[in-house]
């Protein structure tokens, strides 16, 4: 239909190879963290098993054990002083503790390990999200998805274009043929609501016109007077048609954004068509007459929102026209 934005191949912005490379790098990072996590889990297991042992040791005054001797040999021995332990605190510091005190130290150590595991898990979750993002992007660019970016032209207020800009950045991946999706943000809904409001107003105004004209017809049912009113109608219509260029000029004077030019083109394209329909009425009286009224109402509808909204934004208007066609 009309060209309003740019269509870029996603693969030209994010080449499939590059995204795959990035995703691989993130996967590597995840694997590294996984190893760390496994190591921490092994530490926790060691910690709990040694805690059990330390708690059981003082149950007896002595234990018969096999004492390791060198790398491969053991000899029978006896473990005494079962309640006295020398605990490594770290950094080469040892402390003499009872088994109960040792159990407490080990408990604290276990808690520290748990905290580390938690933080590691959080990091891994982040990385996984990143990886899935990269994967999705790689897939999409491999599938030949295109990014459709339409400029959100706004000349009156300075804040809205910024909003439109962020929006297009927030939703960079637009499915093909799903143009609507990109604009279903609050801003656009608000604009649509405003337009619907204006439309209703115009329609009501038009209805009033229609009923007035209908009364005229009922009052003067003969064909000649009907012909006269039609002529009048044609005259007023042609006046309006000649007004059209002025409107479009007004719109174009706001700036030479591409969307604006499009809307201008639209109006100029519509003009001849309407003129043709206007010239039709004299041949077939009654039907053509109602037709001309409809045409007029429709004319107002195209004219008015443009005059009112055109100063606010040109894009919604052109979209509105799109829907109407």
């Amino acid at each position: 239909m009309e060209k309003k934005g740019t269509v870029t191949q996603l693969s030209s912005i994010y080449p499939a190879e590059e995204t795959q490379k990035a995703s691989r790098r993130v996967q590597d990072a995840i694997a590294e963290r996984e190893q760390q996590l496994n190591q921490l889990k092994a530490f926790i297991d060691d910690n709990t098993s040694i805690m059990n042992l330390v708690q059981k040791l003082p149950d007896e005054t002595h234990h018969n054990i096999m004492v390791p001797f060198g790398k491969a040999a053991f000899f029978p021995g006896r473990l005494i002083h079962t309640n006295e332990l020398t605990v490594l605190l770290g950094e080469g510091y040892y402390a003499e503790r009872t088994s109960k005190q040792t159990a407490e130290i080990l408990k604290r150590r276990g808690k520290a390990l748990e905290a580390q595991v938690e933080s590691l898990k959080a990091i891994m979750q982040d990385l996984k999200a990143e990886a899935s993002f990269f994967d999705v992007t790689a897939d999409e660019s491999a599938e030949g998805l295109v990014e459709i970016r339409e400029d959100y032209v706004e000349e009156a207020s300075g804040t809205l274009p910024a909003a439109g800009h962020t929006k297009s950045e927030n939703t960079p991946f637009v499915e093909v043929g799903d143009k609507k999706g990109a604009y279903e943000d609050e801003e656009y809904i608000r604009l649509l609501a405003r337009m619907a409001e204006l439309e209703k107003e115009e329609e009501e105004a038009a209805k009033g016109d229609v009923s007035n004209e209908n009364e005229q017809i009922q009052n003067e049912p003969n064909s000649t007077s009907g012909q006269i009113t039609t002529d009048e109608e044609v005259g007023s219509l042609s006046v309006e048609a000649s007004e059209m260029p002025a409107v479009s000029k007004e719109v174009s004077s706001h700036g030479d954004y591409p969307a604006l030019n499009n809307s201008m083109m639209n109006t100029s394209l519509e003009q001849p068509r309407e003129k043709k329909e206007v010239q039709a009425p004299p041949t077939a009286n009654k039907t053509a007459f109602t037709g001309s009224i409809v045409e007029r109402a429709h004319d107002i509808r195209t004219n008015m929102p443009e005059q009112q909204i055109g100063t606010r934004s040109s894009k919604p208007v052109s979209r509105f026209k799109m829907q109407r066609k």
């Binding site: 950094e91 040892y94 150590r109």
Partner: peptide, 24 residues
């Protein structure tokens, strides 16, 4: 190393005055 030292300090603070402490 900082983390380890902080752990050690915490444990040392929890020890009794008369506890035996060794350094390897």
């Amino acid at each position: 190393q900082l983390g380890e030292n902080e752990l050690v300090l915490k444990e040392l603070d929890l020890l009794n005055e008369d506890a035996n402490v060794y350094k390897l």
